[in-house]
Design a protein around this nucleic acid. Structure first.
Lengths: 346, 346
DNA sequence: AACCGTTGCGCAATCGATTTCTGTTGATAA
DNA sequence: TTATCAACAGAAATCGATTGCGCAACGGTT
């Protein structure tokens, strides 16, 4: 019940608390003999410094806030895992703060970070968020901030992202290359920056390929269930698609069952490609060709960057410019797209 | 950059810091006039009390530790979400501490909780854990502890669990009722208590039904990929199963593709049933009959119980006995098992 | 012998909020 | 008019760890 404090150690050792403090952190002022004696005593009594007291004194904790739009089974588990691993290696603990896709809640989460004197913040914005005003509180408090995955442009903060535009291009290009003529796209919430980028990648490829860009073939869904409905609707159209692009794990998880339920053969009736963390496609049947967006690696990168900033304090300089780190993706081909030489057969 | 403290308010208001403190928390000694003036000032200057200082003084934080074996896309996202929702409603923040299925790491996580003076702990044990000695540190510090999902028996701590034994029975019984004769089971790590309970449920039903219990039809897998291999192996046997029980989301995620890849028809060649959070089966094809284990509700229950303990302090009594809360599950029938009247047809 | 630098450690302030103990008003009752 | 008691607010201690400053003791220098 009773917690051992530095005073207890001091009393036991017959020295001043300040001396104990210095001994424990190898201050040169303390003689090796006393230092060892104190350390041994601390060991014996299972002394553990009270973080709260240290935080209070040093005005910063060993906590890092992770604010994400929502806790889902898609993508974020990987990201969280990557983040946590790196943070732990650097001696930080993770405070999980989901925003439930609400700006208000996101703002509140920032305040919680402030209240707890977090050493830094990792944030993926909700779909309601379109500026970074609510980060000012923490920024002014001197905490480093790294945006990850769902970011905003021109915010001045560091960003660790995927190349959403190019990666979407690559995915759609693959679909085009296999001979699709009417390609539909199912996207996440149109408010999100990553949706806009992926959508632009999608449309740019279709334009460049001189393929039809039917607005009715562009659908938006907030979750897997909505994506399922979207695709069902898509398939009822007089001219259904022969190629489908799914923007994310969440989308493909809804889209694929809808395709299968309609009795279509993949890829013969409709080829499919998506962007994915890479876990799910391994277990979906048929296995989907996808552009691998490694959430784990993204989380690691973001956390490493944040830890570097915490250590260096570089963000405190008046003229500090946020750095942007882009993680490369990888195309993983599966049987849901026709073989590339299908083109030659046409 | 500068943080507003209670001293700043005191200076501005021309009173003593202690008076400000009292005014802000509606102490009867403070006149309404002054109270309102101070509150307004606090509002104006965006005063936020420093949690660390409060923690230090009051010896308890608004942080709750959540220790789970691993961050995966299966089950835990739901659980975390449920936990977080309830904690947030009660004004607590969640510190995420994955153990990576390691007892050492789990022990370390407990220490981190102790160091941060958490108000309470929610824990799902790693598969290496078979006693609760490492919780003593926190217990002695007076923190309430609630075990959730992956628990140990006779530990004296509160437990919020599913009825693993009965639920497994129900699932297997359903399989038997639809006429399966050779039922195989794929389970998680055999070290886990929940595996043992579900395994016992499984075998008890087979025994009671006088069905063969071939040890080669009992397989254990640590993740979805291993489950996939297990089932592949199972299907190569001279007498392959006509019914399959998958213990969890993770298992079914590997098992189902293996079945499909073998070209089998479900349920005609092999009926399938699993235990699941209920999210995934909605998107798997074919849709699997499952016993729904609601992770979200489980997380909510556990967090509610913990918050109640934090408030009441009931766990501090010398003779406190941990309470057990069992969440009921629900059988969700799908096309992966034959219709029940198949029995009559035989 | 007077001086100086170094070593080794204690004193006390500090972080921000809370709380106990006091003390000072002003009002009311005697 | 004085005793008494609210109402109100300040001083100071407290939580645990850290740190600037001071200082004693000792060895070496001139």
């Amino acid at each position: 019940m009773k917690r051992i404090t530095i005073k207890d150690l001091a009393q036991q050792a017959g020295v001043n608390p300040s001396t104990v403090s210095r001994a424990l952190k190898d201050h040169p002022d303390i003689s090796p003999a006393l230092r060892d004696r104190v350390k041994q005593l601390a060991e014996q009594l299972h002394y553990r410094p009270n973080h709260m007291a240290v935080y209070l004194r040093q005005r910063t904790s060993r906590l890092v806030g992770l604010v994400i739009p929502e806790i889902t089974m898609f993508f974020y588990p990987s990201l969280i895992k990557g983040v946590e691993q790196v943070l732990h290696n650097h001696g930080f603990s993770l405070v999980m703060l989901p925003s439930n896709e609400s700006l208000d809640r996101e703002t509140e989460n920032i305040q919680i970070c402030f209240d707890n004197d977090v050493a830094g913040l990792l944030i993926a914005f909700s779909r309601e968020t379109n500026n970074t005003e609510h980060l000012a509180l923490l920024e002014e408090a001197g905490a480093p901030i790294v945006m990850v995955d769902k970011v905003l442009e021109n915010s001045g903060f560091d960003a660790v992202v995927l190349d959403d535009y190019s990666d979407a291009r690559a995915a759609v290009t693959h679909l085009v290359a296999t001979g699709c003529q009417r390609i539909a796209g199912v996207f996440g919430n149109p408010n999100m920056h990553i949706t806009q980028l992926r959508l632009k990648g999608f449309t740019d490829v279709l334009k460049a390929s001189q393929l039809p860009l039917d607005p009715e073939q562009l659908l938006f869904a907030n979750d897997a269930a909505e994506a399922q409905e979207c695709v069902q609707q898509l398939l009822r159209a007089p001219l259904p698609p022969d190629g489908l692009f799914a923007m994310s794990d969440e989308i493909i998880t809804g889209a694929l069952p809808a395709l299968l339920d309609s009795g279509r053969k993949i890829p013969d009736d409709c080829a499919v490609v998506c962007m994915s963390d890479g876990l799910l496609p391994h277990f979906l049947r048929p296995q989907v060709t996808f552009l691998r967006h490694d959430g784990f690696a993204l989380g690691q990168l973001a956390a490493e960057r944040l830890c570097a900033m915490i250590k260096s304090g570089e963000h405190l300089q008046a003229d500090y410019q946020g750095r942007q780190i882009v993680l490369e993706a990888q195309l993983i081909e599966q049987e849901t797209t026709r073989p590339l030489n299908a083109l030659a057969l046409k």
